[in-house]
Design a protein around this nucleic acid. Structure first.
Length: 355
DNA sequence: AACGGAATCG
DNA sequence: CGATTCCGTT
């Protein structure tokens, strides 16, 4: 096998993506549309799933973003989901290493990133060099289908299935969204989540403030909107979000300093430290078996106090995985994003391989 | 730098 | 399908 990184071997088992109506209801999920479940088509693809051993670029980017040591190379900056490639050559190099493409460079990398525009996974922040933005409504769905389906009132009542074949799905309501994000400004400092009919009242009567919710900005068929390209407030202190929590902020979920529960945040407390893990553990049948041994249910708030040893386990035996809100991060603990000793098959027409 | 077409690959 | 490669254009 080429380019075996530790990370590729530690991936979580893929979560079943298709449910029968019976299964769906047992999971507390809404059986939506003819296909059965509320994810975009590409989310079904094994290559896109967290369990896939073939890492995808957007996943790799998240991986880099999640690690502190790469903050000089690539980092979250600006609006929610927005990141800046500070060292394009280095990011390209790392990507090249991972994919065993010695000739990778930013020019090619950026071409690959552009591929995601159509998929609505990424879009370009115009006017800012090397700055892109994730559409988290896509990313989160791919990585936390269970969380989304079984636990989120917002996603329970709604769907991302393209809108065409789901007459039984209700549209995204402001209330549903607000209920998911308790710390979002209600209408306090003049900022409400919604412009009530003020600007351009759509058929729904109110318009989501996409600048506040950039990760809902595209790919949400119930709210068909083009990606919002310019966020009105470019914030100077990075990570200063209305709800005061960046899920990807190292320290919130970082592997290196385990669990610090954000005061109130994206997910209900019983989802910490790892929403997927916990939700899996609570589930009866096949799903709980997806967890590694010893990680099943019970504590609920495990990881908060339940440290095995040391600060994080880097010292002791098993490194304690504190997971950022996507299971792919399981791969992160001590892996080698840019490891020197990658086992790339000699690539055709390869360049740098010595010997 | 950023974009998109086109051919190609695994 | 998800890139990679090459390239011409803005």
């Amino acid at each position: 096998m080429d380019c075996n990184c530790v990370s590729d071997l530690l991936l979580t088992p893929p979560v079943p993506a298709l449910w029968t109506p019976g299964e769906a209801s047992r999971m507390g999920a809404l059986f939506c549309g003819s296909r059965g479940i509320a994810f975009p088509d590409w989310a079904y693809k094994p290559e896109s799933s967290p369990g896939s051993r073939q890492i995808q670029l957007w996943h790799f980017i998240l991986e880099l973003l999640q690690k502190e040591e790469y903050q000089g190379v690539i980092a979250w900056q600006g609006d929610y989901g927005e990141f800046v490639i500070k060292d394009p050559d280095e990011v390209a190099r790392l990507w090249g290493i991972r994919k065993c493409k010695p000739h990778m460079n930013y020019d090619k990398l950026s071409r690959a990133l552009r591929y995601y525009y159509n998929k609505r996974i990424l879009h370009k922040t115009k006017g800012k060099r090397f700055t892109y933005k994730f559409n988290f409504s896509k990313v989160v769905l791919v990585n936390y289908p269970l969380l989304d389906m079984a636990s989120s009132p917002f996603l329970l009542q709604n769907h991302f299935n393209g809108g065409s074949a789901a007459p039984d799905c209700s549209p995204v309501t402001p209330e549903a969204i607000q209920s998911l994000f308790p710390r979002l400004p209600e209408s306090g400092r003049g900022t409400s989540l919604f412009d009530r009919g003020a600007t351009a009242p759509g058929p729904e009567g109110e318009k989501l403030r996409l600048d506040t919710f950039p990760f809902l900005s595209s790919g949400t068929p119930c709210y068909s909107k083009p990606p919002s390209l310019l966020g009105p407030y470019s914030r100077n202190p990075p990570f200063d979000y209305p709800w005061g929590f960046n899920p990807y902020l190292p320290g919130a979920f970082s592997l290196n300093n385990c669990p610090k529960l954000p005061p109130g945040s994206l997910y209900p407390s019983h989802f910490y430290p790892n929403p997927l893990q916990t939700s899996l553990g609570q589930l009866p049948h096949p799903f709980s078996s997806l967890l590694p041994p010893g990680e099943v249910a019970g504590g609920g708030e495990r990881g908060v106090a339940g440290q095995t040893g040391g600060t994080n386990g880097t010292a002791g035996g098993q490194p304690r995985l504190c997971l950022p809100p996507y299971p792919g991060a399981l791969t992160l603990g001590r892996t080698d994003i840019g490891n020197g000793g990658s086992i790339c098959e000699r690539e055709r027409g390869d360049a740098n391989t010595p010997g």
